[in-house]
Simulated assay, not measured.
Amino acid sequence: MKEYQLDDFIKATVTNDLKTVTECLEQGMSPNAKNKQKLSPFIASAANGHVELFRLFLKHQPDVLQVNKFGGTALIPASEKGFIEVVEIGVTTGIPINHVNRLGWSALLEAVILGDGGFLYQDIIRELLLSGADNQQKDFYQKDSYDYASELQQISISSLLTNSLKEDNFSEIRSFLKVGDIISAITHLITMPESAKKNFYLGQSYERLKRYKEADYYYQKEATKDAQFYFYLANSSRRQNNMVAAFEYLDKGIESSDAYFYRYHKTNFLRDTGKHEEALIEMARLLKEYPERVDFLFHQANSLESLGKIEAAIETLHLADRYQKNNKLFIEQASRLEMSIKEKK
């Protein structure tokens, strides 16, 4: 058996290579170990929505309090990126629900700010609230989740945050999905009247069974009428390792809906697949419209660093620091890069 290093372990996690991950664990490697970017296999599994790996790592007693370079727990990127199954599991593991990362955001705040308010993010936010998420928690700008939902005109999210999770026609379906009784969920769904939400849950059900052809069928039925379904198709394509299709669906979302949401998540897909040059192009478009978004600047700096453009990364971090002086994250990261330059001389 090959002798693996930490970088191999993390790469295998990011690419959902169960065989290599299993061999790394058999060699005694820890899911808590972090690389220079402060990424561990445990957090990487959550941040990439790899449910089987996340479950596997939980059997190896990971440190559920550990954080990434943003200061975020495993639950925060999972909530941000729309990985509902990881969220459903994560809220039961002891990961702090109201932990705040170094951008000042909790999992709930990220799900609102970086979500689209659609069916998927409604379920993530519902799950967080049921698990004790504080909807009055404020960030560095003294805004809470309701403030952001209102600004983003996420009407359904605003209702969730204020009307305290009323039961609806799909409550039983969500219960079936959470406990893994997918067949019961599908059996009940097919008897329900036709609706976009019904097709969303049918798609989600088949995705959990890894029957992507059926899942995509239900998402496709709604995509031309409701752009949130392009995001579901993009995620489904990514799980099938069809990144060409994933990016096509994200571009359709950009063309037909909220470019802010789709461009941001396109940068996530690009960074996750190592396409940092293209990620910078999309991030530049976002920053042209939202020049003071320090989270966007931090992502830009990370891509620049990955491309070896260290001085440009430092400049970007100093700009973020000027916009958010009460946050030491950016100046600390800039100092780290400045030190690396000195060490090479």
Score class of each variant (00 low, 15 high):
L270G: 04
H276G: 00
D251E: 13
F247N: 00
F269M: 12
R285M: 15
I281H: 10
A259D: 13
E278A: 05
S256N: 15
T267K: 06
L286Q: 12
F261R: 10
D272Q: 12
F269I: 08
E255L: 15
L286A: 08
R263C: 05
R271W: 01
D251S: 01
Y260P: 06
E278W: 07
Y249A: 08
A279Y: 08
H276P: 02
E248M: 03
T267G: 07
A284M: 13
D251V: 07
E248H: 13
R285G: 15
L287I: 10
S256L: 13
Y260I: 05
I254M: 03
F269K: 02
S256K: 15
S256V: 11
R263G: 00
G253N: 07
G253Y: 08
G274M: 00
F269Q: 07
Y260C: 02
Y249W: 00
M283E: 06
K288F: 13
A284H: 14
K275F: 09
E248A: 05
F261E: 08
A279N: 08
K288T: 13
L287V: 10
R271Q: 12
L280R: 06
R271A: 03
F247K: 07
F261G: 02
S257Q: 12
E278M: 11
F261N: 00
R271H: 00
R271L: 04
R285A: 15
D251M: 03
N268L: 14
L250G: 01
I281K: 04
H276C: 10
E282S: 15
K288M: 13
G274Q: 09
F261K: 05
L287N: 09
Y264G: 07
F247W: 04
N268A: 12
R263P: 03
K266N: 11
F247Q: 01
S256Y: 13
L250M: 11
D251G: 01
L287K: 12
L250N: 02
L270Q: 04
H265A: 11
F261S: 05
M283C: 11
Y249M: 06
F261D: 04
L250H: 04
K266W: 02
R271M: 10
Y249V: 06
E278N: 06
K252C: 05
E282A: 14
L286F: 01
A279L: 06
T273V: 08
L287M: 12
K288D: 15
A259W: 10
L270T: 01
R263L: 13
A259T: 15
Y262E: 05
Y262R: 07
E255R: 11
R285Y: 14
K266Y: 03
E278Q: 08
K275Q: 14
R271Y: 01
D258V: 07
K252T: 05
L250S: 02
E277Y: 01
T267V: 14
K275S: 02
E255P: 06
S256Q: 14
H265M: 07
F247C: 01
Y264T: 06
K275D: 03
Y264W: 11
D272P: 04
M283Q: 12
Y264L: 14
M283L: 15
E277L: 02
H276D: 05
D251H: 03
N268I: 15
D272K: 00
F247E: 08
I281F: 06
